[in-house]
Nucleic acid binder design. Structure first.
Length: 516
RNA sequence: GCGGGAAUAACUCAGUUGGUAGAGUGCAAGCUUCCCAAGCUUGAUGUCGCGGGUUCGAGUCCCGUUUCCCGCUCCA
């Protein structure tokens, strides 16, 4: 059922021009998606709503639009360069993949006991050990005993097996090279000069890294760091007093181990983040404040507000820099999943960057005459996730009575009017008696005001209504026979399908009122 | 990356033991039509994901590969 819903949404997205697979005619590129005309509007509307709410409506929050490529030392200081290259290992017995540094320790030669959920699984594992790995061991119920831990120094956290793949580095940051010359030229020159001769494994890797390091740059894996790095500039330029926030929207890039669920997790994605700098000791209060602000923002545009919830991170899953973190989760078709994280990042980031750069990233409180490193509350939302969330929230199938009295299924995207790609569709009831001309004039009036409007005369009126239901157009304006008599048109509500008459001259003002 | 499934028209899908690529929907043109995918006429659209192989002949069989979906894992 849930897969079904996602498939319908994916299909609608393509058919109606919300989201296309990237580079589709070349076979597609993994996890890359393009936002079509309607998707571009939806995403833009969503992000504009965020910016308006977070920046324009608040005196103490300002914006930033930083470059995606920053100095590589930013990522060293932030911990991303190390943290995003954690060695991962696969278990050869149960196929579990895990982080080597989180695995249960087991010194070489220590007893290793494999545990399985039931006897059947243990039997199967024993057979596998014997046949594929050539190992003899003994099974006792759900366990396999008589094995020793290997040189790795740890065992599989899932089944306890010491049969593991080599550690593999996953570079989760997109690496690129800045400069007009290809760093491979340096490598080629070094090879020709024999400088790499005799090197292997880790040594060779290190040597190659050193050769390419001068030109190595990374695409940002989050927008947050620029706001820490520019903290002092922003604070001084605008003479901001703590507490204040810096907000930023934009693309981020991560080589995710797995991408999934359409645009839910992709390597290139868009974020809406704000770093709120506050006095130490007031941080928990501000964390509560922003949690409530952000939750009410998400719910404001939703049909089903109860599909959003908080989930506090347990201590074990907290990032090393965070004192606390609460996710705003949404009930996706596949289950609850993250949409936004509100983290208390303490003074970790500012201190790290101060230390690494040698710059003072402190705040002097002119009233209290004290100097301190502010604490940071970070509401970090996924903009592209937001698009998916509202598409899922908006997608409805309804049984309605058709023209001939039989029940039909109506597909309607109940997008919030401010998020909807088109605000109005203007339809001549029939293509004659001057109706198309009048409809065109109405469309022009909307476009002059910068309101996304669409003229549509194709096919029967009912079909046009349904077509706009499917892309979420909240209002359809129809020019009919009566328009010629009294200069009124009908306005149809997408969700109720009810119509009422309004004056043709007041149409723009009427819709503006509805959108406000 | 590992394991499982899938890919045929814009969408949803059929396609027999290998023998000239189909339907519905949608789309386009026109007629009709004064309000909820109505009716009629006409029309266009296929590198059958891509690349090899087997074969007289491959949408169909084999191999590789790409992409998508479902689990493991990671995050916004």
């Amino acid at each position: 059922m849930s897969d079904d819903l996602m498939q319908k949404i994916v299909s609608l997205c393509k058919r109606r021009g919300f989201v296309f697979q990237s580079s589709e005619i070349y076979g597609g590129l993994k996890s890359a998606y393009d936002y079509g005309p309607l998707g571009a509007e939806l995403k833009r509307n969503l992000m504009t709503e965020w910016w308006t709410d977070m920046v324009h409506r608040r005196e103490n929050v300002v914006g930033l639009d930083a470059s995606i490529i920053m100095h590589p030392r930013v990522w060293e200081a932030s911990g991303h360069l190390a943290g995003f290259s954690d060695p991962l290992v696969d278990c050869k017995v149960c196929k579990e993949r895990f982080r080597a540094d989180n695995a249960p320790r087991a010194e070489e030669g220590a007893d290793a006991t494999l545990r399985f959920p039931d006897k059947g699984a243990a039997k199967a594992a024993l057979t596998q050990l014997t046949e594929q790995l050539g190992v003899t061991a003994e099974r006792r119920g759900k366990e396999i005993v008589g094995l020793k831990a290997g040189a790795a120094g740890y065992v599989c956290p899932n089944c306890g097996s010491p049969f593991l793949s080599d550690e593999r580095q996953f570079n989760l940051m997109f690496k690129s090279a800045i400069g007009a010359t290809d760093p491979l030229g340096e490598v080629a020159a070094a090879i020709e000069a024999g400088k790499l001769e005799g090197l292997g494994g880790r040594e060779l890797r290190t040597a190659l890294e050193e050769l390419t390091r001068p030109s190595a740059v990374y695409l940002r894996p989050e927008t947050a760091q620029a706001m820490f790095v520019q903290f002092a500039n922003v604070q001084q330029a605008l003479a901001l007093k703590v507490p204040f926030g810096i907000a930023q929207m934009g693309k981020s890039f991560r080589n995710e181990i797995t991408v999934e669920h359409f645009i839910f997790r992709s390597c290139e994605f868009e974020q809406m983040e704000m770093e709120f700098f506050c006095e130490p000791g007031t941080d928990e209060e501000w964390a509560d404040y922003w949690m409530n602000e952000r939750m009410s923002w998400w719910r404001r545009y939703a049909n089903a507000p109860d599909k959003f919830r908080f989930r506090a991170h347990e201590d074990a899953e907290l990032a090393h820099y965070a004192r606390g973190c609460s996710d705003i989760e949404f009930a996706y078709p596949w289950g609850w999943g993250e949409l936004e994280g509100i983290a208390n990042r303490t003074d970790y980031d500012l201190k790290k960057h101060a230390e690494a750069s040698g710059s003072k990233l402190e705040y002097f409180d002119p009233v209290k005459q004290t100097k301190y490193t502010p604490f940071v509350i970070e509401p970090a939302a996924g903009a592209t996730r937001g698009v998916l969330v509202y598409l899922i929230d908006a997608y409805h199938e309804e049984e309605v009575e058709g023209a001939k009295g039989k029940t039909e299924t109506r597909v309607v995207l109940k997008l919030h009017p401010r998020l909807a790609p088109y605000k109005v569709a203007v339809l001549p009831l029939v293509k004659k008696e001057g109706m198309p001309e009048k409809a065109r004039a109405v469309v022009d009036a909307f476009l002059q005001k910068g309101i996304a409007a669409r003229y549509d005369e194709q096919h029967a009126i009912g079909r046009r209504y349904r077509r706009h239901d499917e892309i979420g157009t909240p209002y359809c304006l129809t020019i009919d026979g009566q328009t010629n008599e009294d200069d009124t048109i009908t306005i149809r509500d997408r969700d109720t399908m009810e119509q009422r008459r309004i004056s043709i001259d007041g149409a723009v003002a009427e819709v503006q009122k509805l959108l406000a």
